[in-house]
Computed example of a mutant assay.
Amino acid sequence: MPPKPVSTVAVESMFVDELETYRAQRREKDYELIDVREPSEYAAGHIPGARLMPLSRLTNLLGELAPGKELLFYCATGGRSMAAALMAAESDLKPTRVVNLQGGYMAWDGKELVDYPKVRLLTDKASLADMLQEAMHLEKGTFRF
Score class of each variant (00 low, 15 high):
residue 1 M to N: 14
residue 2 P to K: 03
residue 3 P to H: 07
residue 4 K to T: 13
residue 4 K to F: 12
residue 4 K to H: 13
residue 6 V to F: 00
residue 8 T to A: 07
residue 11 V to H: 03
residue 11 V to I: 05
residue 13 S to H: 11
residue 14 M to K: 14
residue 17 D to W: 11
residue 17 D to E: 12
residue 18 E to C: 08
residue 18 E to G: 09
residue 19 L to H: 10
residue 20 E to D: 15
residue 21 T to C: 06
residue 23 R to M: 13
residue 23 R to W: 00
residue 25 Q to P: 00
residue 27 R to I: 00
residue 28 E to K: 13
residue 33 L to A: 10
residue 34 I to V: 15
residue 40 S to A: 15
residue 41 E to H: 14
residue 42 Y to R: 04
residue 43 A to S: 13
residue 44 A to K: 12
residue 46 H to A: 12
residue 47 I to F: 08
residue 49 G to K: 01
residue 49 G to H: 00
residue 50 A to N: 04
residue 50 A to E: 02
residue 53 M to I: 03
residue 54 P to E: 02
residue 66 A to D: 15
residue 67 P to R: 02
residue 67 P to W: 05
residue 68 G to P: 11
residue 69 K to Y: 05
residue 72 L to N: 10
residue 73 F to W: 02
residue 76 A to Q: 13
residue 77 T to R: 04
residue 77 T to D: 01
residue 78 G to T: 03
residue 80 R to Q: 09
residue 80 R to F: 00
residue 81 S to V: 03
residue 83 A to K: 15
residue 84 A to W: 00
residue 85 A to F: 06
residue 87 M to A: 14
residue 88 A to F: 04
residue 91 S to K: 03
residue 91 S to P: 02
residue 95 P to T: 09
residue 95 P to K: 11
residue 98 V to R: 12
residue 99 V to H: 06
residue 100 N to M: 07
residue 101 L to Q: 02
residue 101 L to V: 05
residue 105 Y to K: 03
residue 105 Y to S: 09
residue 107 A to D: 08
residue 110 G to Q: 06
residue 110 G to L: 04
residue 112 E to I: 07
residue 115 D to C: 07
residue 117 P to D: 01
residue 119 V to P: 03
residue 120 R to E: 15
residue 121 L to F: 14
residue 122 L to S: 07
residue 126 A to G: 02
residue 126 A to R: 07
residue 129 A to I: 12
residue 129 A to R: 15
residue 131 M to P: 07
residue 132 L to Q: 13
residue 133 Q to N: 13
residue 134 E to S: 00
residue 142 T to Q: 07
residue 143 F to S: 12
residue 144 R to E: 09
residue 145 F to D: 12
